[in-house]
Design a protein around this nucleic acid. Sequence first.
DNA 1: TAGATTGTTAATCGATTAACAATC
DNA 2: TAGATTGTTAATCGATTAACAATC
Lengths: 251, 251
Amino acid sequence: MSPVRASHTSAPAHASGSGRSSGRDIPPATVARLPIYHRVLTSLEESGVLTVSSDELATSCGVSPAKLRKDLSQLGSYGTRGVGYDVRFLAYQISRELGLMQPWGVVVVGAGNLGQALVAYGGFASRGFQVVGLLDSHPDVIGQVLGSREHPIEVGPVSALDALVEDDRAHIGVIATPADAAQDVCDRLVAAGLRSILNFAPAVLNVPEGVEVRKVDLAVELQILAFHEQRRADEQHPALDPTSLGEAIYA
Amino acid sequence: MSPVRASHTSAPAHASGSGRSSGRDIPPATVARLPIYHRVLTSLEESGVLTVSSDELATSCGVSPAKLRKDLSQLGSYGTRGVGYDVRFLAYQISRELGLMQPWGVVVVGAGNLGQALVAYGGFASRGFQVVGLLDSHPDVIGQVLGSREHPIEVGPVSALDALVEDDRAHIGVIATPADAAQDVCDRLVAAGLRSILNFAPAVLNVPEGVEVRKVDLAVELQILAFHEQRRADEQHPALDPTSLGEAIYA
DNA sequence: TAGATTGTTAATCGATTAACAATC
DNA sequence: TAGATTGTTAATCGATTAACAATC
């Protein structure tokens, strides 16, 4: 059985051009949307849908048809004028572009509430990512078996990092520690050889050139929502701006 | 004791111009960075730092000095040429702009792994957000007491939503359900009157005009990292592109 | 052929950057 | 006054959008 990467068996005959995805240098904004397209396409595929137009797919993905077509055109000409896109083929091309043809190993550092929830969540395994390590520095938690019933995992020491990377088991590092430990953990991840980091800690990370850091920050998201929430309140009571609020209330 | 919003006691004498923040219509990209500036400023304030230059603050926030100054200038002229920014005053102005002068109530729907981790996390309360409800539709979990030791919370039925919004206790809705329940929960949140939603479910939400939805998606973040990870692998083995990989390996 | 839909172009919009005049 | 640093301007860059020629 040859690896999936090598076989283009799922590509229909109208596959255009090179196997190597054409465009090169895909805009970051496009890359950030590809996972959505991929998920919706996978879902359509499971529903037995064979073809979609850019209009239909765009609606399902919550983007404009123009944006969708522009994005997809970055990957190549995978649609058929007058017909639309072959669901299965397009899903395949996007998964190839995203690097989903192979499973990536994820090591989570920090086995607190968040780390535990992440490994128990199932969100990793379901999309082709495998949790290859759950590490913590606290002696009390090391050795505990956490994770889900299907994917139990024993908490290891942070010192296990190097071996995981060395053996090509870990490819992506996830920081799920408190903020004050984040930079130190980040430095260890980079020192171990990782170049892809997902940071859940509310901290700004310093990384050398070439390291890709994505950040997920609950407080930031809530504060952005608070901003809009306040805007709405302001609009409904335009007179009650902070300068005059005191007088307005206590007049 | 008058409400904090009404008193500008913390503003130093050099406060320029109106109490109402000047610029209006702050660019979304700027709004998204304000929480970072605010957090770093708060941290500086706690360290007893009185003044920062845009260069120092920018470095701490991981942005360029030009971008920082541009962002801050959207709020007003809160700096002093030749000196820098008064840490306390700037933190105050940003918190006012972000709507952090008042506590916002957050209702979390979905008391599974993720929902539990969120309410136990402490990330809410620490930044002026209060979890006013943890709701679920599953009879087994309703009534359970979850959350942290400091902030225990009983799981309630989803039907409790309307009262929470009606009583002005809930302002932001968080969706922590599986993907297939997300749209339904979203519809209920909107119907109950919420206009600010944070979605952790891997689903595209349809919302009416005027509703602000922020999305946090673990799988999306990981797939973006996978894309970069694959790019790096491609660069190191340029010959082993998918088209020729089979032959290359099995030659 | 007629109808449908893609892929691409050109225009617009917004965000970033660099440079510097204003000014503390 | 001299040195430092902001706030703003203008240039650049990237992303979005609308429109349509290409083509199935």
